[in-house]
Amino acid sequence: MIYLKDVTTLRLDTTACTGCGRCAEVCARAVFEMRERKSVIIKPDACIECGACAKNCAYGAITVTSGVGCAAAFINGMLTGNAPECGCGPKGSSGCC
C-alpha cells in the first residue's frame, strides 16, 4: 500500500553515489533501483522515511528526515511538548508499533 503523495523528505545526490547498492538492499519499501551503476529513486511515495538508506550510505549521498509515522506519537508530542515518540518505549504499555 502507498500512503500520501509527494510528502517524503528523501533526497538523493546522484553525484555522490558510487552505485554500491546498499540503499536498495536495506530499503524495505523498494524505493530505489540500481540503474547504470547509480541509485535511482523510482517510488518516492512508497518511502516511509525510516532512515535506513541514509544511515547505510557510506558516501553520504542520501538525506531524509526520519521519524515514526505514528499519529499517537505526534499527538503526545503536541500535548507534552516533547519530541514525537511512539509508545513502545519503557514508559508506554500499549505501543503504536
Binding site: M1, I2, Y3, L4, V7, T8, T9, A28, R29, A46, C47, I48, E49, C50, T65, S66, G67, V68, G69, C70, A71, A72, A73, F74, I75, M78, P84, C86, G87, G95, C96, C97
Partner: peptide, 24 residues
C-alpha cells in the same frame, strides 16, 4: 483510524504530520 498509522508499515512521519495539520 488515524491512530492506526502507528501500526502500519507504510506510513511515514511527513504524511502523518500533514494529516494531523488539517485533521486536529
Amino acid at each position: 483510524a488515524l491512530q492506526f498509522t502507528g501500526a502500519t508499515t507504510f506510513t511515514g512521519p511527513s504524511g502523518v504530520k500533514k494529516e494531523l495539520r488539517y485533521a486536529m
